[in-house]
């Protein structure tokens, strides 16, 4: 099978696959965001709190994504770490309207970044400052400073505001993520 596979690869016909871990506090919009990325006919209006995790598939720009949508409730956050090792990228979603809990999000982010499976690897992290449509939402810059993203030096990261319900900003973020994964993949090859 090797020969044929290599041929396809060379032609660039095959979708490359990537595992993405979607994390963030509860009620930040992880499941909604992934729901938006699903094909139109299987989208649902009924989003309930995730218990544990669920798996989503979507593709974008020649990349086929397998997203692990983790539960954000505090009692399940410790379970995220089980999936760090095998992931190619992380999507961290922040509820930009929740000014009190943004510090909790910061705490969780620090823990994520200091985990050995994450800190040593150069995996791209995409931040969504979600719920941009709400009235007192922080801007992406505001969120960035609240999370002190500028301290992240050894990883490529990107932040954009989004609205998971209408899809505003989501595609921009995912496009960045695909190119970042491709880059890191090529770097890995070299």
């Amino acid at each position: 099978m090797g020969l044929f596979d290599a041929f396809i690869e060379w032609l660039g016909l095959r979708n490359r696959e990537a595992n993405v871990l979607v994390v963030g506090l509860d009620n930040s919009g992880k499941t909604s965001l992934l729901n938006f990325l699903r094909p139109l006919e299987v989208q649902t209006n009924n989003i309930v709190p995730t218990v544990g995790f669920s798996v989503e598939h979507f593709s974008c720009h020649g990349l086929s994504f397998t997203a692990f949508d983790m539960s954000g409730q505090s009692r399940y956050r410790t379970l995220w770490a089980n999936y760090y090792r095998t992931t190619n990228a992380i999507i961290f979603i922040i509820d930009s309207s929740d000014r009190t809990r943004i510090f909790v999000a910061r705490e969780e982010l620090q823990q994520l970044l200091s985990h050995p499976d994450v800190s040593k690897r150069n995996i791209p992290i995409l931040f969504f400052a979600n719920k941009m449509d709400t009235r007192d939402a922080l801007s992406d810059i505001g969120v960035s400073s609240a999370l002190s993203l500028e301290d992240i030096t050894n990883k490529s990261w990107y932040i954009c505001s989004s609205n998971a319900l209408t899809g505003e900003g989501v595609v921009t973020g995912i496009e960045w993520l695909s190119s970042a994964i491709k880059t890191s993949h090529e770097q890995g090859k070299k």
């Binding site: 995730t50 218990v51 544990g52 995790f53 669920s54 798996v55 949508d69 539960s71 399940y76 410790t78 379970l79 089980n82």
Partner: peptide
């Protein structure tokens, strides 16, 4: 431990 991690996957 933590077998409830698959709850959402199963409910789906």
């Amino acid at each position: 431990n933590d077998v409830i991690i698959v709850t959402s996957s199963l409910t789906r």
